[in-house]
Amino acid sequence: MYHQIGLPAAKGTPYRGLTVHPADFRRQMSWMRRLGYRGLAMRDLQPYLDGERQGKVFGITFDDGYRNVYENALPVLGELGFTSTNYFVVRQLGGSNAWDAEKGVPPSPLMSLEEMRGWAAAGQEVGSHTLDHVHLPRISTELAELQIRQSKTQLEDLAGVEVSAFCYPYGHETPALRDMVRNAGYLNATTTQRGLARRSDDRYGIPRVTVARSTHILRFLQKCLTRLEDRRRQD
């Protein structure tokens, strides 16, 4: 689970740790390739999670659709032949992470419509992060269903591709919300629960490994490759 791939904001800035330096991202992806692993978008990972295929693979996801991911991560993914999923906030295409403003997080540009289309044209996956990056459990059922369903249909219309992957904003989800995502036609959904995905996981509650600015390469490999039952309780 990545967010931004770029230069970090000033020290003391909230969520500064969620921006991974481009050189670190390249190093992380290169090491996975060197070890024989192939990075996949959620749509490409699904057969492995369903037990239909086997191989040395790992999922790559980006939350929010930041422009610096397009600029700094996309070239690396293309060079290595990896695919990934980026979860876009529909009504902020070409905007910024406005939902973070009240926390003192400086604005960071998000991909424009054309950049999102370029992302898809490069073989990367377009996923949904709702219309407005809302706290889904805090709004009415009707509004939650609208955020989930309309973000899918609007992204499909805008990008011209099928949108089958969903990510819960802030990681906030409930069994009822999982059902809404399933009923809306998505094939999987990711959370912010920490850990390696397993075949036994609910496809609408898939955990992820958080990669932060401070995640050095040995820690990165440990987090991604260690298969322990208590992995989900690790940082």
Score class of each variant (00 low, 15 high):
residue 225 L to H: 06
residue 50 D to A: 15
residue 202 D to P: 00
residue 222 Q to L: 10
residue 72 N to R: 00
residue 153 T to G: 01
residue 162 E to F: 04
residue 230 D to W: 13
residue 143 L to R: 13
residue 113 L to H: 02
residue 153 T to Y: 04
residue 45 L to P: 00
residue 94 G to I: 03
residue 129 H to D: 07
residue 109 P to V: 11
residue 141 T to G: 06
residue 43 R to W: 06
residue 232 R to M: 11
residue 12 G to L: 09
residue 209 V to Q: 05
residue 193 Q to V: 02
residue 115 E to F: 05
residue 132 D to K: 01
residue 187 L to H: 12
residue 142 E to T: 11
residue 169 P to F: 08
residue 211 V to F: 11
residue 66 Y to P: 00
residue 96 S to R: 05
residue 116 M to P: 03
residue 164 S to W: 08
residue 164 S to M: 07
residue 29 M to A: 12
residue 195 G to R: 05
residue 217 I to F: 05
residue 15 Y to S: 10
residue 165 A to R: 04
residue 186 Y to S: 08
residue 100 D to W: 02
residue 50 D to Q: 15
residue 29 M to C: 10
residue 200 S to A: 15
residue 132 D to R: 10
residue 23 A to K: 14
residue 207 P to M: 08
residue 34 R to A: 12
residue 39 G to S: 05
residue 212 A to E: 15
residue 109 P to Y: 10
residue 194 R to G: 12
residue 191 T to H: 04
residue 104 G to V: 01
residue 34 R to E: 14
residue 190 T to D: 03
residue 91 R to M: 05
residue 193 Q to G: 03
residue 25 F to W: 14
residue 222 Q to F: 12
residue 30 S to K: 09
residue 112 S to Q: 13
residue 128 S to E: 05
residue 72 N to S: 04
residue 141 T to S: 14
residue 59 G to P: 04
residue 182 R to P: 01
residue 168 Y to F: 14
residue 183 N to D: 15
residue 146 L to N: 03
residue 51 G to I: 02
residue 206 I to M: 09
residue 55 G to R: 13
residue 42 M to V: 08
